[in-house]
Amino acid sequence: TVPLGAFRIVFVVFHLHRLYCRACDRTLTERVEMLRGKNRWTVQLAQQVLELVDKMNLQSIAWYLRMSWDTVKKIHAQWLRHKARQRYKELSALRYLAIDELAIRKGHRYVTVVLDLERRCPVWVGKGRGNKALEPFYKLLAHRGIAPVAVAMDMWPTYTELTMKYFPSALIVYDRFHIVANANKALDETRRLLARDADILEAKAIKGTRWVLLRNAGRLANNPKAQEKLQLVARFNEPLYHAYLLKEQLRELWDTCRNDFEARDYLHDWIQQATSSSVYPMVRFARSIAAHRRGILDWFSCRISTGPLEGLNNKIKVLKRNAYGYRDRAYFTLRILFINEAKHVFVG
């Protein structure tokens, strides 16, 4: 056992023997039990680093053990690659997936993350977004004969087309929170358009209503000031108030309807109301909902969402911010794959 600790540098020198085997006509090198492969660090040191990596950042570990930062990173990355190989052997258990992209740097730099919704762990991190980021993972699943039961995603066409191409029997479930967020965007665009052409009274009624219109109605029930704002909008700007009601009616779809049949009728009526309104952003949004109707209704057959993945995205942002970015993209990918196993302890 080699003593390890702060302010102690230990060098171990080995005199290895090379042996010639007449049976296999090969020259072999003596095996050293305290080393693995061609690593230039001992097993004991690697275990020490892995014990500290969940409690300290890499720079602090390198200072504590008087090692190079690159060596500490190599030890951790080697262990993460070993765990990643073990995880990919367990892909046959995949049934429910969630897909979303995350901006990791300015200039539209993205990673596409696929989450196993049952185990709550990432199973794929693709560089960029779109076909190039997701298709290699789908090819891997198809090659192994693995077909997920359902996939949760937003309404981006690329994800839908790839899923239908490789897994035509899988349910495509559009995330309800993304849909409501798009409804809020359409409502906010409506507010800006109407405010631009409003007269004095209408402009006064619209001013300061953005936060009221975008919040859920249930959170405004006990807020007299918010109720007063809504009454002003209803009195002086009927198209904007109608758009607000459409947003709220759509949000209640998932809470009001008990099954696919009720939801189909409810959504059909909502689309008719929205497309017959005089508000163009809501009409455009309603057409998008009509085009993605099947994926919205599939939620009532398989109630999954990308919500757990959104929470994971926040952890990834914290990971990146604590490290002030990552120079090694492969190492960053490995950290994302096992981010739920990390214990975030901040060391100054």
Score class of each variant (00 low, 15 high):
Thr1Gly: 14
Phe7Thr: 13
Ile9Cys: 14
Cys21Gly: 11
Arg22Asn: 08
Arg26Lys: 11
Thr27Tyr: 07
Arg31His: 06
Glu33Thr: 09
Thr42Pro: 02
Leu45Asp: 02
Ala46Gln: 14
Gln47Gly: 03
Gln48Gly: 04
Gln48His: 03
Val49Phe: 06
Glu51Phe: 05
Glu51Trp: 06
Asp54Val: 03
Met56Val: 10
Leu58Asp: 08
Gln59Asp: 12
Ala62Val: 02
Trp63Gly: 12
Arg66His: 10
Lys73Met: 15
His76Ala: 13
Gln78Val: 00
Leu80Pro: 12
Arg81Gln: 12
Arg85Ser: 12
Lys89Met: 09
Glu90Ser: 14
Ala93Phe: 00
Leu94Met: 09
Ile99Arg: 04
Ile104Asp: 07
Arg105Thr: 07
His108Ala: 09
Arg109Asp: 13
Arg109His: 14
Tyr110Ser: 06
Thr112Asp: 05
Thr112Phe: 08
Asp116Trp: 11
Leu117Thr: 10
Glu118Ala: 14
Arg119Met: 11
Arg119Gly: 08
Pro122Cys: 15
Lys127Gln: 14
Gly128Asn: 07
Gly128Ile: 07
Arg129Cys: 05
Lys132Ile: 03
Pro136Phe: 08
Tyr138Ile: 05
Lys139Met: 14
Ala147Ser: 14
Val149Gln: 15
Ala150Ile: 02
Val151Phe: 07
Val151Leu: 13
Thr158Trp: 01
Thr160Phe: 00
Glu161Asn: 15
Pro168Lys: 09
Ile172Gln: 13
Ile172Pro: 05
Val173Trp: 02
Val173Pro: 04
Phe177Gln: 10
Val180Met: 12
Ala181Asn: 07
Lys185Gly: 09
Leu187Gln: 06
Arg191Met: 00
Ala195Phe: 13
Ala198Asp: 02
Gly208Thr: 01
Leu214Tyr: 00
Ala221Leu: 13
Asn222Met: 04
Asn223Ser: 09
Pro224Asp: 06
Pro224Cys: 08
Arg235Met: 13
Glu238Ala: 13
Tyr241His: 15
Tyr241Glu: 07
Ala243Asn: 01
Tyr244Met: 06
Leu246Val: 04
Lys247Ser: 09
Arg251Trp: 01
Asn259Ala: 11
Arg264Ser: 15
Arg264Thr: 12
Asp265His: 06
Ala274Ile: 05
Thr275Val: 15
Ser277Asn: 02
Ser278Ala: 14
Val283Gly: 04
Phe285Glu: 06
Ala286Ile: 02
Arg294Cys: 03
Gly295Glu: 02
Leu297Phe: 08
Leu297Tyr: 03
Thr306Asp: 02
Pro308Gln: 15
Glu310Thr: 03
Glu310Ala: 06
Asn313Val: 03
Lys315Ala: 11
Ile316Gln: 04
Lys317Ile: 01
Val318Arg: 02
Val318Gln: 08
Leu319Asn: 05
Tyr326Cys: 06
Arg327Phe: 09
Asp328Leu: 04
Ala330Lys: 01
Ala330Glu: 08
Ala330Ile: 00
Tyr331Met: 07
Ile336Asn: 05
Leu337Arg: 07
Lys343Arg: 12
Val347Asp: 11
